[in-house]
């Protein structure tokens, strides 16, 4: 078969999802990625001058047309319920409100990153970022 064209997502996972990675919160506190809680993101966004947290509800999860290693996740974002689709590696973790790290293929996430992870499902509400209104 012909080679696949490039996809919108990076070919490998970013290093900060590996268990033990040190994350700096907006107030300067350092935490390991696996220890992050919903409140850490909320409090960091409150301090941030540019970023705010949106609630992004998973509306659909399907396999990518370009590669079996990728999935397309469709979100309903924010109060206006804007529809946004992202193509990600199946092991790419999202942070679900009140629950923690979740991915389309949690076994792979745990295997590759050692990051404790649950299965991302339709209806899950993920933390996403958007810009604060700058007027």
């Amino acid at each position: 078969p012909p080679s696949l064209s490039s996809t919108v997502a990076p070919p490998s996972l970013p290093p900060y999802f590996i268990k033990g990675s040190i994350i700096q919160l907006a107030d300067g506190e350092l935490k390991r990625v696996e220890d992050l809680k919903t409140e850490d993101f909320i409090q960091s966004a409150e301090i941030s001058t540019e970023l705010k947290i949106d609630s992004s509800t998973v509306e659909r999860i399907e396999g990518s047309h370009t590669s079996p290693n990728f999935a397309v996740v469709q979100f309903s974002v924010g109060e206006h319920r804007a529809q946004v689709s992202v193509e990600v590696l199946v092991e790419y973790p999202f942070f679900v409100f009140g629950q923690g790290w979740s991915s389309c293929c949690p076994d792979r996430t745990t295997q590759l990153l050692e990051l404790p992870c649950t299965k991302l499902s339709v209806g899950d509400v993920c933390i996403s970022l958007t810009l604060k209104n700058l007027r």
Partner: peptide, 19 residues
């Protein structure tokens, strides 16, 4: 040891403009 900012970990999803 590298230190990563908190906002790297969650996706930036830009909702469509309205209002």
């Amino acid at each position: 040891v590298p230190v990563f900012p908190w906002h790297s970990l969650v996706p930036f999803l830009e909702p469509s403009q309205s209002g």
